[in-house]
């Protein structure tokens, strides 16, 4: 992890084009979002296709606080994260309490995102409705000023910010080693986990809340970077799906899965969009969808599972049993 972070820090000093920097920012953004999504949906196996709800809550909270009270987005994102946690509790508690699993949980998550979506449109006096909201531009005067307002004229500072977010996200996930094991056990068999002394609801709710908090903070970053949000882009199904996709393609329930997925998918989509998007709108997403379906069919556990599959094949060929105890998922 440290080496990877170092490499990415070195990348910062490379003379890259604006487009390349943009791709890097987006990639890290989705790596971070996927890491947040992964905590609840990958490790605990509760597939949410409505995580955009929490992104939107985070984004709108910090944006509203900034435009009405000039509150720095740094505090705004904490506030947004907390509101997202509250929203998550409203849905997570009854979901886990009533034992909503499998497709039922997924449908509930989609419904929550839809509700947030419609409420954002309905509250047009505050949120601008489906026309969306722009981030009030503050002219860059001093570095301190830019930092406080989390607004920069170039892409480079955003790169550093999202690199930091992503690192913290990975670190948080990594530090939760015990919880990760519990969540995996709960995913595999809830009753068996409970019988072994694992509190199912407590661990699920912890995972759900941290997950919501993380993607809500990502929402604030989205606002600051794109300077414009609307309900369709930030509470819509596509964003929810994208968070899930980077994690699933990379390998959900593994520490680096979402990051691997993001580094593979996002540059690919963006380059496809650049080269094909102008001539034939939709072609890049069409190819993206096909890639996804093929990946799910042939590599359902994601790219992170490849080494394991290769090792298993090798072990079968060699006929040598490995007696080494597993060192856990890392």
């Amino acid at each position: 992890m440290g080496i990877l972070a170092l490499v990415l820090l070195v990348v910062y000093f490379l003379p890259l084009t604006v487009f390349a920097r943009h791709i890097l920012v987006l990639t890290l953004f989705y790596a971070f979002m996927g890491t947040g999504w992964n905590l609840m949906c990958g490790y605990a196996g509760r597939l949410s296709l409505g995580h955009a709800a929490f992104v939107a809550v985070g984004a709108y909270t910090s944006l509203l606080l900034f435009s009405h009270f000039s509150l720095t987005p740094w505090i705004g994102m904490i506030a947004g994260g907390l509101v997202a946690v509250v929203v998550m509790m409203l849905i997570a508690y009854p979901s886990f309490r009533f034992g909503l699993i499998g497709p039922y949980f997924t449908l509930a998550s989609i419904a929550v995102a839809e509700i947030v979506h419609y409420l954002l449109i309905y509250g047009r006096d505050l949120t601008g409705g489906s026309l969306g909201m722009s981030l009030p531009y503050v002219k860059e005067t001093t570095i301190i000023n830019s930092l406080i307002n989390l607004q920069f004229d170039g892409k480079e500072p955003y790169y550093l910010v999202i690199l930091g977010f992503w690192l913290v996200g990975l670190l948080v996930t990594w530090k939760m080693e015990r919880t990760r094991y519990y969540l995996e056990a709960i995913r595999e068999d809830q009753d068996a986990a409970a019988a072994l002394g694992i509190s199912v609801n407590k661990n699920l709710i912890i995972a759900a809340c941290i997950s919501a908090f993380m993607v809500a903070i990502g929402g604030t970053f989205y606002v600051q970077y794109f300077r414009y949000i609307d309900p369709y882009s930030i509470a819509g199904f596509t964003l929810s799906l994208n968070m899930a996709l980077v994690a699933v393609i990379g390998g959900s329930g593994t520490l680096f899965g979402p990051t691997i997925g993001a580094f593979l998918l996002i540059p690919l989509t963006e380059i496809l969009r650049m080269t094909l998007g102008a001539q034939i709108p939709g072609l890049h997403l069409f190819l993206y969808g096909i890639l996804l379906v093929v990946c799910i069919i042939f590599l359902p556990k994601g790219i992170a599972s490849l080494p394991g599959i290769i090792r298993a094949k090798k072990a079968k060929n060699d006929q040598k049993p490995e007696n080494q105890a597993s060192k856990g998922v890392l």
Partner: peptide, 15 residues
């Protein structure tokens, strides 16, 4: 769920 979501994505963008 994910495969059919991807399929939906394909169909929408095909259209």
């Amino acid at each position: 769920i994910i495969a059919t979501a991807g399929l939906g994505f394909v169909l929408q963008n095909l259209a």
